[in-house]
Computed example of a mutant assay.
Amino acid sequence: MTERVFLQLGTRPVPYPEDVRARLDRDADTIIARYSLPEAPDPQMARSALLPLLHLVQAEDGFVSPTGIEFCADRLGLTGAEVTAVSTFYSMYRREPTGDYLVGVCTNTLCAVMGGDAIFEALQDHLDSGDDRLTLTRVECNAACDYAPVVMVNWEFFDDQTPESARALVDSLRIGEEVVPTRGASLCTFKETQRILAGFPDERPGAAHAGGRVGEPTLAGLHIAQDAGMTAPTVSRPTDSGAAPLDSEEATAAATTKDKPAPAPTESVPPEKGE
């Protein structure tokens, strides 16, 4: 008699407690409503709410947990595989528990050559691996190259960093001091940041008015152009969705063939011009 063998390939996520699920459902209702019309609900359109919903579950769990994946799938009529595919594609979604402060060091080309690699190595040596309030990671370019090397904490910018300033920054975070980024309001925790990214109000004092600084490195090219009397070149009105104008021979050929059906698979395709 053949003995049956059962393989357990994974454990089913533990559902959220009822009170947590009810709170998340209310927030999810608010998010999903932005992506569908009340008079004509469209499940396909509602699926556009997946990205903010992933931020919502990160605000609850500190990362995209298996339970969070199941929650998003259930709310949007998706499979767990579909939600996982999206959450693992974007680097802003964490796959493992994250501390109160996600310290990201840009080590893309410009920041790296300006000292980003040295900053990352310095923080690796400086941070206690047992301190679960701080999570160190590398981040992709965040378009602040004018101020390289850049460190980000919970996606807020700290410009023109050095190994020394970066160590002082994380020391302030560890002892609970108020830390204000180069641009923006005082830092909040990773989970609080995720709730803001999910589309809920940023209630930090001054948050709505704290991000307007434009520094000289950003404006340098503009000032050079103004001093040299440079202006943007004029362009003619584009034709054919921006395609280059056709010469007379090409225009004639286009006019005679634009309404002609495409050749059947058995027909030969005309040679390219010049062949």
Score class of each variant (00 low, 15 high):
Ala28Arg: 09
Ala28Met: 09
Asp29Cys: 11
Thr30Met: 09
Ile31Thr: 04
Ile31Gly: 06
Ile31Val: 15
Ile32Asp: 03
Ile32Ser: 07
Arg34Met: 11
Arg34Asp: 10
Arg34Pro: 12
Arg34Lys: 14
Ser36Ile: 06
Leu37Asp: 15
Leu37Ile: 13
Leu37Thr: 13
Pro38Phe: 09
Pro38Gln: 07
Pro38Cys: 08
Glu39Trp: 14
Pro41Tyr: 01
Pro41Val: 08
Asp42Cys: 11
Gln44Ile: 13
Gln44His: 06
Met45Gln: 14
Met45Lys: 15
Ala46Cys: 03
Ala46Phe: 00
Ala46Ser: 15
Arg47Asn: 09
Ser48Leu: 11
Ala49Ser: 15
Leu50Ile: 11
Leu50Val: 11
Leu50Cys: 09
Leu50Asn: 01
Leu51His: 14
Leu51Ile: 15
Leu51Cys: 05
Pro52Phe: 09
Pro52Trp: 06
Pro52Val: 06
Leu53Thr: 02
His55Ser: 12
His55Pro: 03
Leu56Lys: 01
Leu56Ser: 02
Leu56Ala: 02
Val57Pro: 12
Gln58Arg: 02
Gln58Met: 11
Gln58Asp: 08
Gln58Val: 10
Ala59Ile: 04
Glu60Met: 10
Glu60Pro: 08
Asp61Ser: 13
Asp61Met: 07
Asp61Lys: 12
Gly62Tyr: 02
Gly62Trp: 05
Phe63Tyr: 15
Phe63Met: 06
Phe63Thr: 00
Phe63Cys: 08
Phe63Gln: 04
Phe63Leu: 02
Phe63Arg: 04
Ser65Asn: 04
Ser65Trp: 01
Pro66Ser: 12
Pro66Ala: 08
Thr67Gly: 14
Thr67His: 03
Gly68Lys: 03
Gly68Phe: 01
Ile69Asp: 05
Ile69Met: 08
Ile69Arg: 10
Glu70His: 14
Glu70Gly: 12
Glu70Lys: 11
Glu70Asn: 13
Phe71Ser: 03
Ala73Gly: 05
Ala73Ile: 01
Asp74Gly: 14
Asp74Ser: 10
Asp74Lys: 14
Asp74Val: 07
Arg75Val: 00
Arg75Leu: 00
Leu76His: 10
Leu76Ser: 12
Leu76Thr: 11
Gly77Glu: 00
Leu78Asp: 01
Leu78Thr: 02
Leu78Arg: 00
Gly80Leu: 02
Gly80Ser: 10
Gly80Pro: 05
Ala81Val: 13
Glu82Thr: 14
Glu82Ser: 15
